[in-house]
Write a protein that binds this DNA or RNA. Structure first.
Lengths: 190, 190
DNA sequence: TCCAATAAACTAATTTAATTAGTATTATAA
DNA sequence: TTATAATACTAATTAAATTAGTTTATTGGA
């Protein structure tokens, strides 16, 4: 039988596609194997199992997001950079809802690789905040504020939990205004 | 064989306990049945299956949270009420991480019952905002801002995604300060 | 009180997914 | 060219969800 030419990268990419199309929770090794025209056990030559697959998908997402956010911060500074970076997070999370779902469970796989994938991202945000005349200590807290809002907002959008006809784009814009106005009250504090 | 005296309520409560103790994703009908000293098929006399169980757990959570938040809003007003209500959300979500996890997937079961469970909650928040001299339109957006932040923050706390030793309690406090300061810039607007 | 109907539990069987064991075949590199 | 390693396979196992069909307890009239 002809070799399928599988490798880890191919498998993760296909899983990412399936996650975005059908939903993260609906990925099974059977479905994945079918999409790749192999039998489920063949996948075990490249991944350790479904937990490993999910972990790889999580890492894949954070690495892609890091790339995208870093690009968004090029040639902008201050609050403009902050806004650009937030917006790129939102775009990635909503355009890749399946992968984003895998990323949410970040915690469960806590390890060096995961830390490495998010470390660059953190230092990017950190660099932006540090140009805003905000104390290091408040920086740490504000990063959590923004991260919470962004993950929460994207999650709710992806889950179509915002029921009424109010514009989601406008809500995002106003939310950023609120956060930024609030952040400004911390300039020079401490 | 003696009847176990099962009913839907008993099953949901036990599932809620298990979700908080072992994690929402780890609930199986086998585990649940064992905890209730029955065989898995017996559960089907009261619930339609595992999807139905998860949906019921989601509703159970939103009803409990509604109750708790309403209590938190008694005898306070304005931004104090807003803060009290946010804090009670946070407490519930972190003290009931398993149930909160079920609540997150709210969307997937969108129906009248789910809407009814969150409707009261929405109108509570709405009433609070409407005392703050904020336009109806901005109200709609700000509710999304707060909701996103609160769900995101609780999710991250529950998943132990805030790695560093910075105080989580302090981050929550500062986040609320940021949101409230930002919200104040919308007073009288529009 | 008795009995029919209903509800609640059961056992047994089915389906589907994840995983493991063991085998065969292809590619590669000495 | 041949040994080795990698890759895919089939077959079997385990575990969970679910369905079918049966039994037994409860309960509300006659």
């Amino acid at each position: 039988m002809a070799r399928a030419g599988l490798d880890k990268e191919t498998i993760i990419r296909k899983a990412a596609d399936l996650a975005n199309e059908a939903g993260f929770e609906r990925i099974t090794l059977k479905l994945l194997a079918d999409s790749l025209n192999v039998q489920p056990p063949s996948l075990y030559n490249h991944i350790k199992g479904i937990d490993d697959l999910q972990r790889e998908l999580m890492l894949y997402g954070w690495r892609q997001l890091d790339e995208k956010m870093t690009q968004a911060a090029v040639c902008v500074s201050g609050y403009d950079a902050l806004e650009a970076v937030c917006r790129s997070f939102y775009e990635y999370a909503t355009e890749n809802s399946g992968i984003f779902n895998a990323m949410l469970w970040y915690n469960k796989f806590q390890n060096d690789e995961a830390d490495k994938a998010t470390e660059k991202l953190f230092s990017l945000i950190y660099r932006i905040f540090s140009t805003l005349n905000i104390s290091k200590e408040n920086c740490d807290h504000l990063i959590r504020t923004y991260r919470s809002f962004l993950e929460g907002f994207a999650l709710l959008v992806n889950n179509r939990a915002f029921g009424n006809p109010v514009s989601i784009e406008e809500s995002f814009q106003i939310s950023l205004q609120v956060l930024i106005a609030g952040t400004k009250t911390f300039e020079g504090k401490d």
